[in-house]
Protein backbone atom coordinates (compact mmCIF):
# COMPACT_ATOMS: atom_id res chain seq x y z
CA UNK A 1 0.00 0.00 0.00
CA UNK A 2 1.59 3.25 -1.14
CA UNK A 3 0.62 6.48 0.57
CA UNK A 4 -1.08 9.09 -1.64
CA UNK A 5 1.53 11.74 -0.94
CA UNK A 6 4.37 9.35 -1.77
CA UNK A 7 2.58 8.51 -5.01
CA UNK A 8 2.18 12.22 -5.78
CA UNK A 9 5.87 12.78 -5.00
CA UNK A 10 6.94 10.04 -7.46
CA UNK A 11 4.51 11.13 -10.14
CA UNK A 12 5.50 14.76 -9.92
CA UNK A 13 9.20 13.93 -9.93
CA UNK A 14 8.76 11.72 -12.99
CA UNK A 15 6.73 14.43 -14.72
CA UNK A 16 9.32 17.12 -14.00
CA UNK A 17 12.19 14.89 -15.13
CA UNK A 18 10.33 14.15 -18.34
CA UNK A 19 9.54 17.80 -18.95
CA UNK A 20 13.09 18.86 -18.15
CA UNK A 21 14.48 16.22 -20.47
CA UNK A 22 12.16 17.23 -23.28
CA UNK A 23 13.14 20.88 -22.86
CA UNK A 24 16.83 20.01 -22.85
CA UNK A 25 16.40 18.04 -26.08
CA UNK A 26 14.47 20.87 -27.68
CA UNK A 27 17.17 23.37 -26.68
CA UNK A 28 19.92 21.18 -28.10
CA UNK A 29 17.88 20.78 -31.28
CA UNK A 30 17.24 24.48 -31.73
CA UNK A 31 20.64 25.53 -30.43
CA UNK A 32 21.70 27.18 -33.68
CA UNK A 33 18.66 29.45 -33.78
CA UNK A 34 19.16 30.42 -30.13
CA UNK A 35 22.56 31.77 -31.00
CA UNK A 36 22.28 35.51 -31.31
CA UNK A 37 25.18 36.00 -33.70
CA UNK A 38 27.65 34.12 -35.86
CA UNK A 39 31.39 34.40 -35.35
CA UNK A 40 33.72 35.17 -38.28
CA UNK A 41 34.92 31.55 -38.11
CA UNK A 42 31.36 30.29 -38.57
CA UNK A 43 30.88 32.74 -41.44
CA UNK A 44 34.13 31.58 -43.05
CA UNK A 45 33.03 27.93 -42.76
CA UNK A 46 29.48 28.32 -44.11
CA UNK A 47 28.85 31.83 -45.29
CA UNK A 48 25.15 32.71 -45.42
CA UNK A 49 24.05 33.52 -48.99
CA UNK A 50 24.68 37.08 -50.18
CA UNK A 51 21.85 39.42 -49.26
CA UNK A 52 20.58 37.29 -46.37
CA UNK A 53 20.42 39.25 -43.12
CA UNK A 54 22.23 37.79 -40.13
CA UNK A 55 24.19 38.96 -37.14
CA UNK A 56 27.95 38.89 -37.05
CA UNK A 57 29.80 39.19 -33.76
CA UNK A 58 33.45 39.47 -32.79
CA UNK A 59 36.22 41.87 -31.91
CA UNK A 60 37.11 45.01 -33.86
CA UNK A 61 40.57 44.23 -35.22
CA UNK A 62 43.32 46.76 -34.50
CA UNK A 63 44.51 48.82 -37.46
CA UNK A 64 41.47 48.15 -39.60
CA UNK A 65 39.19 51.02 -38.61
CA UNK A 66 38.83 53.58 -41.41
CA UNK A 67 36.33 56.39 -41.53
CA UNK A 68 35.30 58.19 -44.69
CA UNK A 69 32.92 61.10 -44.88
CA UNK A 70 30.58 61.51 -47.83
CA UNK A 71 28.43 64.57 -47.38
CA UNK A 72 26.59 64.33 -44.09
CA UNK A 73 27.06 60.61 -43.53
CA UNK A 74 30.07 58.84 -42.12
CA UNK A 75 31.05 55.41 -43.32
CA UNK A 76 33.22 53.25 -41.09
CA UNK A 77 35.08 50.19 -42.33
CA UNK A 78 36.58 47.70 -39.93
CA UNK A 79 37.32 44.00 -39.66
CA UNK A 80 35.50 41.82 -37.15
CA UNK A 81 37.66 38.96 -35.97
CA UNK A 82 37.53 36.07 -33.53
CA UNK A 83 41.25 35.44 -33.74
CA UNK A 84 40.88 32.79 -36.42
CA UNK A 85 38.98 34.49 -39.20
CA UNK A 86 38.07 38.07 -40.05
CA UNK A 87 35.15 39.59 -41.94
CA UNK A 88 35.34 43.14 -43.37
CA UNK A 89 32.38 45.26 -42.26
CA UNK A 90 31.05 48.48 -43.82
CA UNK A 91 28.71 50.61 -41.77
CA UNK A 92 27.20 54.02 -42.32
CA UNK A 93 25.85 55.70 -39.24
CA UNK A 94 26.51 56.50 -35.62
CA UNK A 95 28.49 53.97 -33.61
CA UNK A 96 27.72 53.23 -29.96
CA UNK A 97 29.77 54.86 -27.23
CA UNK A 98 31.78 51.75 -26.43
CA UNK A 99 32.85 51.08 -30.02
CA UNK A 100 36.60 50.84 -30.32
CA UNK A 101 39.59 48.75 -31.32
CA UNK A 102 39.67 45.47 -29.41
CA UNK A 103 36.07 45.96 -28.39
CA UNK A 104 33.38 43.32 -28.94
CA UNK A 105 30.67 44.21 -31.46
CA UNK A 106 27.56 42.58 -32.83
CA UNK A 107 26.61 43.85 -36.28
CA UNK A 108 23.35 43.22 -38.11
CA UNK A 109 23.41 43.14 -41.87
CA UNK A 110 24.22 40.95 -44.86
CA UNK A 111 27.16 39.83 -46.94
CA UNK A 112 27.15 41.54 -50.32
CA UNK A 113 28.74 40.35 -53.56
CA UNK A 114 31.72 42.66 -52.89
CA UNK A 115 32.64 40.25 -50.08
CA UNK A 116 32.06 42.77 -47.29
CA UNK A 117 29.43 42.60 -44.58
CA UNK A 118 27.17 45.63 -44.99
CA UNK A 119 25.88 46.41 -41.53
CA UNK A 120 22.65 48.26 -40.84
CA UNK A 121 23.26 48.31 -37.12
CA UNK A 122 26.33 48.02 -34.90
CA UNK A 123 25.97 47.15 -31.23
CA UNK A 124 28.80 47.10 -28.70
CA UNK A 125 29.33 43.96 -26.64
CA UNK A 126 31.31 44.51 -23.48
CA UNK A 127 33.03 42.05 -21.22
CA UNK A 128 32.04 40.91 -17.76
CA UNK A 129 35.12 42.44 -16.10
CA UNK A 130 34.58 45.54 -14.01
CA UNK A 131 37.34 47.66 -12.51
CA UNK A 132 38.06 51.33 -11.80
CA UNK A 133 39.96 53.28 -14.45
CA UNK A 134 43.06 53.85 -12.32
CA UNK A 135 43.31 50.11 -11.66
CA UNK A 136 42.97 49.39 -15.37
CA UNK A 137 45.64 52.00 -16.12
CA UNK A 138 48.08 50.61 -13.59
CA UNK A 139 47.50 47.05 -14.81
CA UNK A 140 48.30 48.24 -18.31
CA UNK A 141 51.35 50.19 -17.15
CA UNK A 142 52.62 47.13 -15.29
CA UNK A 143 52.16 45.07 -18.46
CA UNK A 144 49.66 42.81 -16.75
CA UNK A 145 46.73 43.61 -18.99
CA UNK A 146 44.76 40.52 -19.93
CA UNK A 147 43.12 40.97 -23.35
CA UNK A 148 40.06 39.10 -22.12
CA UNK A 149 39.25 42.14 -19.94
CA UNK A 150 38.57 44.09 -23.13
CA UNK A 151 40.54 46.81 -24.87
CA UNK A 152 43.31 48.26 -22.75
CA UNK A 153 42.75 51.84 -21.59
CA UNK A 154 44.61 54.54 -23.43
CA UNK A 155 44.41 56.87 -26.39
CA UNK A 156 44.81 54.00 -28.89
CA UNK A 157 41.40 52.58 -27.99
CA UNK A 158 39.24 54.55 -30.39
CA UNK A 159 36.21 55.95 -28.66
CA UNK A 160 37.24 54.96 -25.17
CA UNK A 161 35.54 57.26 -22.67
CA UNK A 162 37.89 60.06 -21.76
Amino acid sequence: MIKPKTRRLYMLSALLLGFGGATALALVGFSSSLTYFLSPRQVAAHAPPAGETFRLGGIVEAGTVQTTQTGESLTTRFDVTDGQAAVPVIYTGILPDLFGVGQGVVTIGALEPDGAFHAEEVLAKHGSTYMPRDVAQSLKDAGKWNPKFGPAPGPDALGSPS
Binding site: Y36, L123, K125, H126
Partner: peptide, 23 residues
Protein backbone atom coordinates in the same frame (compact mmCIF):
# COMPACT_ATOMS: atom_id res chain seq x y z
CA UNK B 1 27.66 30.33 -21.88
CA UNK B 2 25.64 28.01 -24.08
CA UNK B 3 24.90 30.46 -26.85
CA UNK B 4 26.39 33.65 -28.28
CA UNK B 5 24.55 36.50 -26.65
CA UNK B 6 24.91 40.28 -26.71
CA UNK B 7 24.61 40.16 -22.92
CA UNK B 8 28.00 39.72 -21.29
CA UNK B 9 28.93 36.55 -19.43
CA UNK B 10 28.37 35.97 -15.73
CA UNK B 11 30.81 38.08 -13.70
CA UNK B 12 30.33 36.06 -10.55
CA UNK B 13 30.51 32.30 -10.37
CA UNK B 14 31.23 29.75 -7.67
CA UNK B 15 34.92 29.98 -8.50
CA UNK B 16 35.30 33.73 -8.24
CA UNK B 17 34.41 37.08 -9.69
CA UNK B 18 35.75 39.40 -12.35
CA UNK B 19 34.65 42.52 -10.49
CA UNK B 20 37.22 44.66 -8.70
CA UNK B 21 36.67 44.66 -4.89
CA UNK B 22 35.75 48.36 -4.69
CA UNK B 23 32.85 47.58 -7.04
Amino acid sequence: QWWNTLHQGNSISFTGSSIYPSM
